[in-house]
């Protein structure tokens, strides 16, 4: 990481300038994260009276815990569905908006605002539409013979939170896909059209390859969103239920940490999540370096 070529003379100033940011980083980020790693290696009783080093036993216990493995599975289904749904819908809308060109302005305005809706609020909106007695979607489903009750049916509950999470994320993906599409030179498309390529072939052989970096970037961002930012959707609506049907990893860490009394186990869960974030961030940064090169 370079500095500017011309810099100010040496003094205490830079340390003072950095002090607020570093103080907050150390106190509220690095120290607690260190604590999580340390306590994941210890077994502690609920009152903090005794503590014993157990090595990786907490992690081993997690891998044997069926509810934890279940949370992993739910997270996988949830994140994959949210990501695919939000990206495919957004790509479709972006292609449509790109097709009509300048006149797409009003559509853009009407499509981007859900970005501003908090995940928890998005969850409440969908929860209301699916309410088994008064929700409009639940009643519509009832009319075509599907009995909807997400309070009892785990698959339906999971479907509901997936829809709410994807609904909120479409606008973000739409903006990035549209920007990606608009960056494709018109001459390329014209050349392909002159060569007799129809819309489908133009998409397959010109648009899609040029859009790949954007898609990859969005893939990582969407996975991160589905893993971490959707806590509010789950907490405000299903509370992880019915049973464990909508308990994703982030929700489980929260519930086990504050409700349960197994501090070591909860810390081990945090460390697993930490590893996931580090992996996602690393992938994202390597990708950006690649993009900068050409």
């Amino acid at each position: 990481m370079q500095a500017k070529r011309v810099t100010f003379p040496r003094s205490l100033t830079p340390y003072l300038l950095l002090a607020p940011q570093l103080a907050i980083t150390l106190v509220f980020f690095i120290w607690p994260a260190g604590q999580a790693v340390v306590s994941s290696l210890f077994a502690e009783d609920a009152f903090g009276l005794s503590r014993a080093f157990v090595g990786l036993a907490n992690f081993a216990a997690l891998l044997r815990d069926p509810t934890y493995l279940n949370a992993f599975q739910v997270t996988a289904v949830f994140s994959a569905s949210v990501t695919v749904l939000a990206m495919v819908l957004a790509l479709g809308l972006a292609l449509a908006a790109d097709r009509i060109g300048k006149r797409a302005g009003p559509y853009r305005v009407l499509l981007v605002w859900p970005y501003a809706v908090a995940p928890a609020v998005a969850g409440i909106l969908w929860w209301f539409m699916f309410n088994p007695t008064i929700g409009i979607l639940a009643r519509a489903l009832d009319a075509i013979g599907i009995s909807w009750n997400h309070f009892l049916n785990g698959e339906q509950a999971l479907t509901m939170v997936i829809l709410a999470a994807a609904w909120k994320q479409v606008s973000y993906n739409f903006l990035f896909f549209l920007a990606g599409l608009q960056a494709i030179p018109a001459s390329l498309m014209e050349a392909a059209a002159l060569d007799g390529a129809g819309p489908v072939r133009r998409f397959r052989f010109v648009v899609w390859p040029l859009l790949a970096p954007t898609s990859f970037f969005l893939l990582v961002v969407n996975l991160t969103y589905a893993f971490f930012d959707t806590f509010g959707i789950i907490h405000a609506t299903t509370g992880g239920g019915p049973g464990q049907a909508t308990t994703i990893l982030v929700y489980k860490v929260f519930r086990d940490g504050f409700g349960g009394l197994d501090l070591g186990g909860s810390a081990a869960q945090s460390v697993v999540l930490l590893a996931i974030v580090i992996a996602l961030t690393a992938v994202q940064f390597r990708h950006i370096e690649r993009r900068v090169q050409y």
Binding site: Q21, T25, I30, A33, V277
Partner: peptide
């Protein structure tokens, strides 16, 4: 610079309990 960079990898969700403690 690295200390600041690391915060990218530490969302609240992964350090809930200890941060609450602090």
């Amino acid at each position: 610079f690295w200390l600041i960079f690391i915060t990218l990898m530490l969302p609240v969700e992964v350090r809930i309990l200890p941060t609450f403690q602090v």
